Amino acid sequence: MLTNPRSDRVRAVRALSRRSVRSRTGEFLAEGPQSVREAVRFAPEHVRDVYVTPDGAERHPEIVEAARVARLFVHEVTPEVLDAMCDAEHPQGLVAVCRWAEPAFDAALAALPPDAVVCVLTNVRDPGNAGTVIRGADAAGADLVVVSDSSVDVRSPKVVRSTVGSLWHLPVVTGVPIPALLEGLRARGVRLLAADGAGETLLPDVDLTGAHAWVMGNEAWGLEAAVRDACDEVVRVPIHGHAESLNLAMAATLCLYASAGARGAAR
């Protein structure tokens, strides 16, 4: 059992909460039983180590067993060691050190089906919002999430926790400059739908047949004018009550579920 919260190993794991260290090592943290369970289940080849407290092992024996069946390194640690490793204020008994592996943008585009639904995040800075959008894209059956280079690092602990394991369920491509992102999608035949409160087309009226991408903007100021103008259509979610607006994650989920409904009706 690992008992020293000041050991070099513990410090190295904790350092993955810093973006510079994640970029240098290609590794990041999956904290909590949901994230660790999905990493072990869907991408064990990308899990380097699993750390678990005695209580975590007792609460989630199926995760520990699955990790061992997958021949992963499982280390028992004290609660104090797990606290020192994790970014979360209240760790839940499990953390995994994972290696980041994502498809190249061109390869991800080539793998899209003819009726693809894509979610694009531009200038999204809030980790909780980014993670929740990825989770919503997964739930709605989206085929790809693309995150621009001006957005939050999706490997940050807060984003990973907010995805609740969905990060392992669908392709997520990061670090793509916005112009290249839009050009690549259009070249693949994907219609670009800007989700913006300035849109003249209402969500219930937009044509969602064929391959299309929802292009989402910053939480505070929405889409840049140049990005909005580069899209094929600007769509807004109607507000029926007195709310000023919907937040990014709510609006993205509504748009993605509209696409899921249209795709289901067409199949």
Results as ranks from 00 to 15, higher is better:
residue 88 A to Q: 14
residue 231 C to R: 08
residue 20 S to A: 15
residue 68 R to M: 05
residue 114 P to Q: 00
residue 91 P to F: 06
residue 228 R to H: 11
residue 226 A to M: 13
residue 89 E to I: 13
residue 52 V to H: 06
residue 195 A to Y: 07
residue 167 L to I: 15
residue 26 G to M: 04
residue 175 G to T: 02
residue 121 L to H: 05
residue 216 M to Q: 09
residue 132 T to E: 09
residue 23 S to A: 15
residue 60 H to N: 12
residue 45 E to P: 11
residue 119 C to W: 04
residue 184 G to P: 00
residue 53 T to W: 05
residue 41 R to Q: 14
residue 144 L to S: 02
residue 149 D to V: 07
residue 78 T to H: 04
residue 202 L to K: 08
residue 214 W to I: 07
residue 231 C to W: 04
residue 16 L to T: 00
residue 112 L to E: 09
residue 83 D to N: 14
residue 220 A to S: 14
residue 7 S to I: 11
residue 107 A to I: 11
residue 174 T to N: 05
residue 164 V to F: 08
residue 83 D to Q: 15
residue 55 D to V: 14
residue 228 R to E: 12
residue 45 E to N: 13
residue 266 A to P: 03
residue 173 V to Q: 05
residue 143 D to W: 03
residue 71 R to C: 06
residue 196 D to R: 11
residue 88 A to Y: 10
residue 241 G to M: 00
residue 55 D to K: 11
residue 242 H to Y: 13
residue 253 T to S: 14
residue 267 R to S: 12
residue 43 A to E: 12
residue 90 H to V: 15
residue 228 R to G: 05
residue 238 P to V: 03
residue 184 G to A: 08
residue 81 V to G: 02
residue 78 T to I: 10
residue 207 D to W: 02
residue 253 T to N: 11
residue 208 L to T: 09
residue 14 R to W: 11
residue 5 P to E: 07
residue 225 A to W: 01
residue 226 A to I: 13
residue 53 T to Y: 04
residue 96 A to S: 07
residue 26 G to D: 06
residue 62 E to N: 08
residue 238 P to A: 05
residue 67 A to K: 09
residue 263 R to A: 12
residue 12 A to E: 12
residue 182 L to T: 10
residue 117 V to Q: 07
residue 222 G to C: 05
residue 5 P to R: 05
residue 263 R to G: 09
residue 265 A to Q: 14
residue 237 V to N: 10
residue 172 V to K: 05
residue 43 A to M: 06
residue 238 P to H: 03
residue 263 R to N: 01
residue 123 N to F: 11
residue 216 M to E: 07
residue 31 E to V: 11
residue 241 G to Y: 03
residue 143 D to L: 01
residue 242 H to N: 13
residue 162 S to Y: 02
residue 25 T to P: 01
residue 245 S to M: 01
residue 263 R to P: 00
residue 195 A to H: 03
residue 110 A to E: 14
residue 18 R to E: 15
residue 246 L to D: 09
